[in-house]
């Protein structure tokens, strides 16, 4: 077992619990996906796992190490990396500089640093001709690639991906998912959130469903696909019901 979440409760404002007693497991070497309607709290969970938000209670373990009290940068040392839902490249730095900064933890080991850099660049060959361009000059899809590539520079054991394909063209979505499959083949453990249910199903080994801040169930692809259409109908109702905001 890789990442364990136990009874996690998170709130932005006092007594408005966005996540309630969320428990789930992300198994080593697999792709685990979290699906759910807009505003369910998926990004809130990702931010809490990466240390950007502090939970009200509950525990997060990575390979048995309790992460709760560690700041985000310390969690990276333990092998946790995240690609946030929002755009997060350093716009005024070059693509190369963005990637290099992902290697902060290994910066003193020049050999490892350079090997990692070339591994990452080989995985994302589209970035190669753009290495010396400012990150802000990349298209949305390319920036997404850069964000994923940069997170790999931390040499993560577990990679959290929050809506990696949101807002991208269908062609780019395909490309992003091809990369996710490649990472899976490299046996990087992945915890994935995406609104693109179809792609999620295509890559995930196990899925959890999150609604209104609570885990409503989970199962393998086979187990869930039967009830999928009912699920999605329910979400449309939730999203239109005005009970939850966008996210």
């Amino acid at each position: 077992m890789s990442l364990q979440v136990r009874n996690l409760t998170v709130e932005y404002h006092r007594d408005i619990e966005i996540l309630r007693n969320v428990s789930l497991n992300v198994e080593k070497g697999l792709v685990t996906a979290l699906i759910g309607p807009n505003g369910a709290g998926k990004s809130t969970l990702m931010k809490t796992l990466s240390g950007l938000l502090k939970p009200k209670h509950g525990d997060i373990y990575l390979d048995g190490v309790r992460l709760n009290d560690l700041p985000p940068d310390e969690r990276v040392k333990h092998g946790l990396a995240v690609v946030l839902q929002r755009r997060s490249v350093f716009p005024q730095l070059t693509v190369r500089e963005n990637l290099q900064l992902g290697g902060w933890r290994i910066r003193r080991d020049q050999r490892l640093f350079e090997d990692t850099f070339s591994e990452v660049i080989n995985l994302f060959p589209d970035l190669k001709p753009r290495l010396d361009d400012k990150a802000s000059s990349l298209s949305g899809g390319q920036q997404r690639m850069l964000e994923i590539a940069r997170s790999l520079m931390t040499r993560p054991k577990v990679l959290l991906l929050d809506e990696p394909s949101a807002g991208l063209s269908p062609l780019m979505v395909k490309l992003v998912y091809r990369h996710i499959k490649e990472l899976k083949d490299l046996s990087i453990t992945i915890f994935l959130v995406d609104q693109n249910i179809q792609q999620c199903f295509s890559v995930a080994d196990y899925l959890y469903v999150l609604e209104l801040g609570e885990v409503k169930g989970g199962g393998s692809k086979m187990e869930l696909s039967a009830s999928l259409s009912d699920l999605i109908r329910g979400w449309l109702y939730l999203e239109q019901g005005g009970k939850v905001g966008g996210g």
Binding site: L52, V82, L84, V89, F90, P91, W104, S151, M153
Partner: peptide
């Protein structure tokens, strides 16, 4: 430029 994103890369 983005302190949150820097933190998630392990930058102290």
């Amino acid at each position: 430029q983005d302190s949150e994103s820097a933190a998630t890369l392990g930058i102290p």
